[in-house]
Each structure stands twice: as structure tokens, then as C-alpha cells.
Simulated scan of single mutants.
Amino acid sequence: MKGDKLLCEIYRSSRKEEMYLYVDKRQGLAEVPEALLERFGKPVLTMTMILTPEKTLARAKVSDVMTAIRDKGYYLQMPPAKEEYLLDLYRTPTEARY
């Protein structure tokens, strides 16, 4: 990867909602470990985009994504953590009042 631009492909997981893999378009999924791909499920191409330091992403820093792709060959974006209070609401039994 030369310069400050990267043509990136973004894949979503077929197994886990809101989990994405970012890879260099030239290498594709070749650098992603087989064990990760097994847990990720079938990668579904979501989009192709040019990453630059000026670009912003919704849940990741572009510099982190570009560094990970340069160093490891991929960047894995995990789903956001659930809000603790929502988990508490889920765990709390509710009464049905009629």
C-alpha cells in the first residue's frame, strides 16, 4: 500500500450482525486467517471505497483501519457493545397486568 490512499473492500458477516471485514481490494480475503473466516461466516461484499486520512467512518478511525490492513492484511470491525441498561431491562422479569 503506497501513499495515503487505499482501495478497500468491505464485507459483512453472514453470521454476526454489524460485523465487518475491511481488506485491500488487491489482496482480497487472501490475508484473512482461515479461523477468522470460519467464525465470520460467508463474507458478503457490502461496498468498495477509497480510504484516505481525511475520510470519516461511522464506527472506526480511518487511520486504524489503514494501519491494520497494512500490517495484518485486514481490519475486523466488531458489533457495537450493547448498552448495559438495555441488558438489565432484558434480564428483569416483567409482569403482565390485565
Rank of each mutant, 00 (worst) to 15 (best):
K5I: 01
K5M: 11
K5E: 04
L6E: 00
L7H: 12
L7T: 09
C8S: 03
E9L: 03
E9R: 12
E9Y: 05
Y11P: 04
R12T: 12
R12Q: 12
R12S: 14
S13T: 07
S13R: 08
R15S: 10
K16S: 10
E17F: 01
E17K: 14
E18K: 15
E18R: 14
M19G: 02
M19Q: 13
M19N: 05
L21W: 03
Y22K: 00
K25H: 11
R26W: 01
Q27W: 07
Q27L: 05
G28C: 04
L29Q: 05
L29M: 09
A30D: 03
E31Q: 09
E31D: 08
V32I: 03
V32A: 03
L36A: 05
L37Y: 01
L37A: 04
E38L: 12
R39P: 01
F40I: 04
F40R: 02
F40P: 11
K42A: 07
K42Q: 09
V44W: 01
T46V: 11
M47F: 04
T48F: 04
L51Q: 00
L51V: 00
P53L: 04
P53D: 06
E54P: 07
E54G: 11
K55P: 00
A58T: 02
R59L: 10
A60G: 03
K61Q: 13
D64M: 10
V65P: 01
M66E: 01
A68V: 07
A68N: 11
I69D: 03
R70F: 02
D71F: 00
G73Y: 02
Y74L: 04
Y74E: 00
Y75S: 02
Y75C: 09
Q77D: 09
Q77W: 07
P79S: 09
P80G: 07
P80S: 09
A81H: 10
A81S: 11
K82Q: 14
E83I: 11
E83M: 13
E83W: 13
D88V: 07
D88P: 00
L89M: 14
Y90A: 08
T92V: 00
A96V: 10
A96C: 05
A96Y: 13
R97Y: 15
Y98R: 15
